[in-house]
Design a binder for these strands. Structure first.
Lengths: 115, 115
DNA sequence: TACTATGCATAGCACTTCTATGTATGTCAA
DNA sequence: TTGACATACATAGAAGTGCTATGCATAGTA
């Protein structure tokens, strides 16, 4: 899952699911808004393209982590709102622990001596 | 770049280069030892296989981030010791910043509300 | 003598990813 | 009124990658 440069694609791929799940755990949202939200929160460092996000959302829905419903916005456009399901919260917890574990190893290395 | 389960493969891929560069920035080392060291530091969570590590080391050497030299160990076996080069330190700094940026976004999300 | 640990290496199949492209509508400015 | 841009979702398939399986070699030990 990728973006227009800035952040390494492997890092983008690794962080996509945790980011999406974390966002959705705070309330339902839809594709376009997720892209904006991530862009803002990362100070423009993470600029996902829609062509990359949607397949990830679809996959996560297939996994049963999230579910969607169509909502008509004030402007008249249709939006597909996603919300997190029970399995999604479980997945998020696992991914969060894994992330923190790896982060711990890196942080420890960086702490031991300035690199 | 992957391991035998435990940590998500995408996360493993994203953390491999930063981990290797961070380790080497503390002193030269060789493939087999790097695998052990990462295994220990992650409490067995990150168990890289040799078939996955070597291609990464080769790629990083091609990039000019690290360099190698053959050393005969006390036991008589040949080891290929890698050490970090100037460009490798630069790459490490960039990757560290990127990692911390993404980590910051995740940490912020996790802080805002228990998920 | 056979197995495990040490130690490095790579071909190529299998899988994934993302680019490019498509659809559609609303708004605003020229 | 037409063109540009933002909003909004979707996917085929080329392009690229990763990792499994396999190979080589030696030392120690049960």
């Amino acid at each position: 899952m990728h973006s227009i440069s800035m952040i390494d694609k492997e890092l983008v791929a690794a962080s996509a699911e945790p980011l999406i799940l974390s966002l959705l755990s705070k309330g339902e949202s839809y594709g376009y808004a997720i892209i904006q939200e991530i862009k803002t929160r990362s100070q423009d460092q993470l600029q996902w393209t829609d062509g990359m996000l949607y397949p990830v959302l679809h996959r996560m829905e297939r996994e049963g982590w999230i579910e969607s419903r169509w909502v008509e916005s004030e402007t008249g456009r249709k939006r597909k709102y996603y919300s997190i399901k029970k399995d999604g919260k479980k997945a998020l917890n696992e991914q969060r622990e894994q992330w923190l574990k790896v982060h711990g190893v890196l942080a420890q290395l960086w702490k031991e001596k300035y690199v």
